[in-house]
Design a protein around this nucleic acid. Structure first.
Lengths: 223, 223, 223, 223
DNA sequence: CATGAATGAGTCTTCATTCAT
DNA sequence: CATGAATGAAGACTCATTCAT
């Protein structure tokens, strides 16, 4: 006996979609925390189901395989950068130094709030399929893009010295990720702000001609 | 403790020890390459045995568990730093800039030649036991020590600016490891030397007062 | 805890419970027969699964380990005594001799019907954990209790001679178990009834004063 | 180069034989204690070699397989009865009651001194091959023989009542073995002598006509 | 004789995935 | 939709046995 199609069918579909989204999020969050704690391989799908308060079978209706979950978790983190970093840059006015400072700060804040998941992404990306890995690599390069743009534009206007913007952008990423990768070392010794200031100064002393350092007393200590 | 056989008993013991060492190395090398390729968890002990051309049982005579092998592989890499880096520094004369350049260069060369295993160490150190992880952490800090010393001594003589030597040393490590962590990105685009020059310049511009840059034309481009 | 389905939810739960019980019994019976045939250690879990017509994985959903199965099998046998022996005694009237005869007979009948499993319990109890062994010991003493009670009460009324009731009860157990332990010798030569009569007579001639033997012509042959 | 055959070749052979015997005993003793502690299956040949202070390879020159060792250990115990029990009976004079008492006492003393190995024989005899088991069964019946003979002869002279001598002899064995099988229960509560007296009395009250009990005040308490 | 390094088949156990309900 | 019972392939690890030295 087929379901009677009532007039509020659209409303029901919306409810359905919302529920699906809610379930997916629940699984993703549970997976993220569980994997961070014990790692992808040590996490059984049954354990994940328990943590997510969902049945094993249902998980397999949202995700095709255990690996798909890992993929989704990593993508989920990388998505976070897409929103926050450009927003911070956009709100930093016209000065490229301020833009870079704001962007890097935002980037590091995301790393900090997801520091376990960030390490997870480093650790488990080798577990993904070739395609999955490719997607993650591409997305990661994408998170770098806003910072890269700031550097390139400032080089064009002559504010930053000419040098490989790519390398510099990678350094920024690496130093930001470093906060997560060596969290056990840094977190007990430095505040996130101290860490960010230091690393930003390192990069700015490379990017800016020494003669203009004095214009940025907030970011570069006078010698 | 039965009857001693003959006068060349010591020779026989030496042969035995040599064989043991050779086997251990065989396993370690096979494990390192196999784990780098497919990861620790995906590597079955059976597969390791085949790659090492040794029986499964014998592996367990040298290593207590699969995890012990991982631990040994990681320690094995970390050992490589202990020899090369101090030697490079010692052979670099009295100038701290030259020392840092030589040390960092040596460090990066080790990273480069073990770049897969270096990534492995990042990836899989979470798989180790608490003690194992502690040992690895400590050893890793140990690899940093020689570079840290150079920085500290140069700060005392006023050659380097005063700042957190610890943070700088960690940056050096991170940037060196970055070569391995993003090998897929860097290696096709830059030579190792280019990478090293760039990163060294970044750090030196931070450590050296701008007024002394001109004294190191090899490491710092004139603006 | 998702939406309750319908009014027959309780019925479904009952079905589930029944299936679980059935499976457990399936495993226990298969294990009992297989272990009796070839021993605990020679029985692989794979073989057990095949005999029980169940998958290996499912066995581990009901039992935590192979040893748990052994424990359960032994406990299962010991449980059989708890029901039959007291019932037989209760149905034997007021005469302690009749009670002892009925109890011992029931005991031996249980031994007979589980003679392989009884030997199994002797053989493999050393394989259990300390706690498992303790539980089995205690349960075994429990199976003795009803017979011990009969003896003690009859001693109080003077029907039985005063002597260590404990030793007598243990003798009864031992002689009953003897039927299983030396089944290969006894079974082809004597019927169970003959065996029981003989052993009961041995014990009664010890417990009863010679003067009262004539009152029990069914159990004690006149000289 | 073949061994030079010297004149004291016979002496050397004797030395060789003695050494072999000594090694065999060492293995047997180590096996007996090790198996009693942890069981046959839990005992690895390598562990046995260590305990026996002998190499693994050498064990396999004296015994064809691990099971052979078990067989040898059990036979070794059963041999002990062959010497002691007949001797005790022979030294007990002409009275069958005294003979039985002496024989049973000797039997129990052997059980007591090998109580762990006795349990071992019960536990692990199922592990033997068909032939091995047959040999052990036969030998066990052999240990019963001397006691069986005493009973039969006394029945012929009318000292003991006519009844199945076989059953009685088995009871004696069972009760003797009971000391080992329930050592954990009996040993802390009774001395071996008390145990033997009790069990002997049980059997004698069955074998002897009540009218002759008074003639054996040492073994049978007057009512 | 004596050693113990070497083998590899076989064991218990886990867990991703499916599917009847 | 949702469940979780059921599956069985695959993995780490052990250990009886052999054999070159």
């Amino acid at each position: 006996m087929p379901t009677p199609k009532s007039s509020n069918e659209i409303g029901q579909a919306a409810v359905k979609r919302a529920r699906t989204e809610w379930r997916t999020r629940q699984v993703l969050d549970a997976a993220s925390s569980l994997m961070s704690e014990i790692g992808f391989h040590a996490m059984s799908v049954q354990a994940l189901a328990e943590r997510a308060e969902i049945s094993v079978g249902l998980i397999y209706q949202y995700f095709g395989s255990k690996e798909d979950i890992l993929q989704a978790v990593i993508v989920d983190i990388l998505d976070a950068y897409g929103d926050d970093v450009p927003e911070a840059i956009a709100g930093a006015g016209d000065d490229p130094v301020a833009q870079l400072a704001a962007g890097f700060d935002a980037y590091c804040k995301v790393v900090d709030s997801h520091h376990k998941a960030t390490v997870l992404a480093y650790r488990e990306s080798g577990t993904l399929t070739e395609e999955g890995r490719a997607q993650v690599k591409e997305m990661e390069l994408g998170t770098m893009e806003p910072l890269l743009d700031v550097v390139r534009r400032a080089q064009e206007t002559g504010t930053f010295l000419p040098m490989s913007a790519e390398l510099i952008a990678h350094d920024l990423l690496l130093l930001a990720h470093g906060w997560a990768l060596k969290y056990w070392f840094f977190a007990p010794r430095y505040s996130l702000d101290e860490y960010v200031s230091h690393q930003l100064a390192v990069i700015l002393r490379t990017l800016l001609p020494a003669s203009s350092w004095k214009n940025y007393p907030d970011h570069l200590p006078t010698e």
